[in-house]
C-alpha cells in the first residue's frame, strides 16, 4: 500500500511538471487570473454590492473551473499521457 502511494506521487509529480515544460501552464494561469478578476469585479459587481463578502467571486468560480478545466483537456501539454498528440498504441496502454 505504501509503495502504491509512492508510485501515485511519482506519476502526479511528473504529470504536473509536464505542464511547466512548455508555456502552457503559464498561459492558463494568466487566463484564469484575468477571467476570475473580470467576473468578480466587472460582471459580479464586487464593489456595487456594498457588502463585505466574496460571493461575487465564488458565484462565478464554478463556471470558470468548468470551462477552463474543459479547455485543459482539449489541449493538454505535450507528453501528457492522455493527450491526442501523444499517439501510439504503447503510449495509450500506459493510460
Amino acid at each position: 500500500m505504501r509503495a502504491s502511494w509512492a508510485v501515485i506521487r511519482t506519476i502526479a509529480k511528473r504529470e504536473l511538471a509536464a505542464y511547466f515544460e512548455s508555456p502552457v501552464a503559464y498561459v492558463f494561469l494568466v487566463i484564469f487570473l484575468l477571467l476570475s478578476g473580470f467576473f468578480t469585479f466587472t460582471f459580479g459587481g464586487f464593489f456595487e454590492r456594498g457588502e463585505a463578502s466574496l460571493a461575487a467571486f465564488f458565484n462565478w468560480l464554478p463556471w470558470l473551473f468548468l470551462f477552463r478545466g474543459c479547455s485543459c483537456f482539449w489541449c493538454p501539454p505535450r507528453g501528457c499521457a492522455c493527450g491526442p498528440r501523444s499517439g501510439g498504441s504503447e503510449r495509450s496502454s500506459f493510460c
Partner: peptide, 11 residues
C-alpha cells in the same frame, strides 16, 4: 522494452 520505445518526449 516495448516495440515503439515509448517515452515522455518532452522530458
Amino acid at each position: 522494452l516495448p516495440e515503439a520505445a515509448p517515452s515522455y518526449t518532452e522530458m
